[in-house]
Write a protein that binds this DNA or RNA. Sequence first.
DNA 1: ATTATAGGCTAATTGTAATTAGCCGTCAAG
DNA 2: CTTGACGGCTAATTACAATTAGCCTATAAT
Lengths: 206, 206
Amino acid sequence: MDTKHKILDEALTLFSERGYANVYVNDIAERVGIKAPSLYKHYKNKQAIFDAIIDEMNSRFMEQAGTLNINGMDPTADADIYKTMNEESMIELGKNLFLYYLHDDYTKRFRKMLTIEQFHDKELAHVYQQQYYEMPLSYQGMLLGLLVSQGILVTDNVPVMTLHFYSPIYLLLTVCDREPEKEQEALKILEEHFRQFDKLYGRTIE
Amino acid sequence: MDTKHKILDEALTLFSERGYANVYVNDIAERVGIKAPSLYKHYKNKQAIFDAIIDEMNSRFMEQAGTLNINGMDPTADADIYKTMNEESMIELGKNLFLYYLHDDYTKRFRKMLTIEQFHDKELAHVYQQQYYEMPLSYQGMLLGLLVSQGILVTDNVPVMTLHFYSPIYLLLTVCDREPEKEQEALKILEEHFRQFDKLYGRTIE
DNA sequence: ATTATAGGCTAATTGTAATTAGCCGTCAAG
DNA sequence: CTTGACGGCTAATTACAATTAGCCTATAAT
């Protein structure tokens, strides 16, 4: 029973490192601790393993769809936090968001796999798009919009402000996925990014 | 003689759409208009074709390393242009840079291939990093730095300003690679980005 | 003229990965 | 206590993609 899930787990790891085509069912089986033919007791074929991973991810997203937020708690908590927001705590929140995306094991493997497989078919492209473009921009846009309505940040174009907030995070994330040893450097740059962001968009009355 | 080059060309197209492992030498040969075994008169094996693509790209980069610039002319021309820079012409330049990256056939195919293959080995990761992180940031940083020294833009942190300029371009490029039908939308967002960028960093004395 | 080479072809050959066949032990439900 | 389904194994089998063998033609250099 647990084997079924372990297969997905190990397959995801391998797919994220080498891509679907370069992973052999044998490799997956080996990591699970069984022989390749036994995999077929759990999944119809290799493709079904891949599909199951995508399905599992889709349900995880559904779950967290409402609760996705910067500090891992519920959105109301976020709103409260932002009421008392200052530069330092914003930097802290931003960094944590970045580090969550970067280190959370499932998130990370899934992102790398999608990066590799995104051109394989329309559906995967769409999943990627949702995860790393639509969702972050809409969620963060909501939060930043809140800060604007509370006068903590100032702009007449929240979507673009959100783009300015998020796109460096995204860029640096891809950098670290590629070259993990750049993490410290990325964090330093990220901190400067947030600081600058705050200077640019923060209420100028000091 | 030309066949040898055509092989690289068609292989790059296929690799960029499906990735190395999902392209069969047969597919390449078919597009070139020869039979698979004939490929081996030109390249030792499939890997050698891939390597030749990487090599060719490396030399292209060497060539343009010095001349890379926003409008496809030489850097001095860029500098001149920036002397008379205003918001509209900056938007125009930015858009053109984006559209160049997006539409230039070789550039586009190469970028997609690298995206798919970047985790395959360290070298590819490094090439990607150079192309889409180090080089754009350093070159654009140079140009923007010029604008700062001329008082057209204002900041005490040129690298981060450059990150703010470039990372939305990068993000939107990946969006369009994935879903080309989003191009118009991306251009619109991009325009707003540049406009906002100018507002944020432009000399506030108007 | 003749010959070597470049570049193409067809027909193997090889290698390997996915999948299937069929057997076996365990254990929970009747 | 016995049976059936679950999940594991070994030993095929299948499928197919990469590569090699060996042959042929044109052409360019000697």
